[in-house]
Nucleic acid binder design. Structure first.
Length: 287
DNA sequence: AGCCTTTGACCAGCG
DNA sequence: TCGCTGGTCAAAGGC
């Protein structure tokens, strides 16, 4: 066993250096290795634990929340220029506090954990449950992760989970730090994937909605995101439109390639293959 | 059978 | 040198 903090034969990419990668690059001009995607239907409303065991009936009561919580970002992602606008807006909003602009993928992954009540009258999330839903799923970015450790850090207040990418020869690791109440407060990616995003068929998610959301690719670069970013984001929504659910469903019906912006033919093939089953899932969730 | 999570132990860095 | 902290390993067990 090599053990300990010196496991990296070569020093892992410093978080800071990877953060230098422009956020927009990961979204607007995806690099050859497809960026991670969100697969999160199974994530919402449940405490940290084995999400693989969820059944659709378990998720049904949360469906509306899921759709509402995500539709804002979905609409952003549906328009690349708009993503740019959103990115700029976010950057400007956080200019005073040196915030790293968060890829939408991570927003999607974390937003459900944010207390929706904090959104106040911001519109996009208005009318949603005021309860705080919890999200924790290592595969939320579309890659397959294996948890290899967990530590309680920061005086026992913040359990931190350590994940490895399960792909062979891929050394990407992900640290997920939770707050005392179980919310994700920080996700740190270490390294870059040396492979393409696994087929959605392989991604373990509970429901088609999550698979669709998986097409909202984010930067694979190491990044640090704080929950406060998302809270700020929710207080300053880019889009506020009650018809977003409908638009979301339209996007779902149309397929997700247009949203993914991926040029990967295999991925597209996978998308095509899974479209029918996803549509079925959507209908089930929204019944 | 394969993959995953859990969890205690180990190790390195740092003050 | 010592203790603390963070990161990782690997066995065990579950699904």
């Amino acid at each position: 066993m090599d053990g300990g903090g010196g496991l990296w034969g070569a020093p892992p990419p410093a978080v800071e250096s990877l953060l230098d990668a422009p956020f927009s690059d990961g979204w607007l001009t995806p690099p050859p290795p497809p960026p991670p995607t969100l697969s999160g239907t199974a994530l919402f409303g449940y405490p940290q634990g084995s999400f693989e065991n969820f059944h659709e009936q378990d998720l049904a009561p949360l469906t509306a929340q899921v759709v509402h919580a995500k539709c804002t970002i979905l609409n952003q992602a549906a328009s690349l220029p708009f993503v740019q606008m959103a990115t700029s807006a976010l950057a400007s909003q956080h200019a005073s506090c040196s915030v790293n602009v968060t890829p939408l993928q991570e927003m999607l992954a974390l937003q459900p954990k944010i207390s929706i009540a904090n959104t106040g009258s911001t519109g996009a999330l208005q009318g949603l449950s005021t309860s705080s839903v919890t999200l924790d799923r290592p595969a939320a970015d579309g890659y397959n992760w294996r948890k290899y450790g967990q530590k309680v850090v920061k005086g026992g207040e913040c359990p931190k989970s350590y994940y490895k990418c399960t792909h062979m020869n891929c050394l990407v690791r992900k640290n997920v730090e939770h707050s005392a109440d179980g919310r994700i407060v920080q996700i740190i990616y270490r390294g870059q994937h040396t492979h393409e995003r696994p087929s959605k068929k392989r991604i373990k998610v509970c429901g088609g909605l999550s698979e669709h959301l998986a097409d909202f690719s984010g930067s694979v670069d190491t990044s640090i995101r704080s929950q406060s970013d998302y809270q700020d984001y929710c207080r300053n929504p880019i889009v506020s439109n009650d018809t977003m659910v409908g638009r979301l469903m339209e996007n779902m019906e149309d397929g997700d390639e247009q949203l993914a912006g991926s040029s990967d033919s295999q991925q597209e093939h996978d998308d095509e293959e899974s479209t029918s089953s996803r549509s079925k899932d959507y209908s089930e969730y929204n019944q």
